[in-house]
Simulated scan of single mutants.
Amino acid sequence: MDTMTVSLTDVDLDAKAAEVVSGAAEAAAGKGLSLEFSRGGVVVRAQRDMLDTVLRNLMGNAVRFTLPGGTIPAAATATRSRSR
Rank of each mutant, 00 (worst) to 15 (best):
L58P: 05
G23A: 01
R82M: 04
D14Q: 12
E19L: 05
R84Q: 11
G69C: 00
L58T: 14
A28G: 15
L58H: 07
K31I: 12
T9D: 00
T3F: 02
P68W: 04
R84F: 10
V20F: 05
E26C: 02
G41A: 00
G41S: 08
A74G: 02
V11M: 03
V63G: 14
L67I: 04
A24W: 02
V20N: 04
R84T: 14
T77M: 03
S81D: 14
L51F: 15
A29D: 11
R48F: 14
L55C: 06
F65L: 04
S38K: 13
K31G: 09
L8T: 14
R80Y: 08
R82S: 12
V21C: 01
A29N: 08
D10M: 09
V44K: 03
D2C: 09
M1I: 11
V44Q: 01
S34L: 07
A17Q: 09
L55K: 03
G70D: 07
A74Y: 15
T9R: 02
G30V: 05
G60Y: 07
S38M: 05
M1H: 03
R45M: 01
E19N: 08
R48P: 11
G69L: 00
M59N: 11
A76Y: 15
R56Q: 06
S22Y: 07
V63H: 14
G41R: 05
L8P: 00
A15K: 05
G70L: 01
L13Y: 15
R82E: 14
K31H: 03
V21Y: 14
R84M: 07
D2I: 04
T53E: 06
T3V: 02
R39K: 01
V20T: 12
S81K: 13
V21G: 10
L51N: 03
G41L: 09
G41H: 14
S7C: 05
L33F: 11
T77H: 13
K31V: 09
F65W: 07
D52I: 12
D12I: 00
D2H: 00
V63I: 11
A18M: 01
D10T: 08
G32D: 08
T77E: 13
A75S: 13
T77P: 05
A27P: 06
G23F: 03
T66I: 03
A15W: 15
A25M: 07
M1N: 09
P68A: 10
R48T: 15
V6R: 02
A46Y: 15
V44W: 15
E26P: 10
S38W: 07
T9K: 06
A29T: 07
S34D: 12
G41F: 15
T3L: 03
D10K: 11
V63P: 12
N61M: 01
G30A: 00
I72G: 14
L33Q: 13
A18L: 08
R64L: 03
G41V: 06
T3K: 02
S83C: 12
R80G: 07
S7D: 06
E19M: 12
E36M: 00
A25K: 04
A78Y: 14
G30W: 08
V21A: 10
G40T: 08
A29Q: 02
P73D: 13
S83I: 04
S38Q: 12
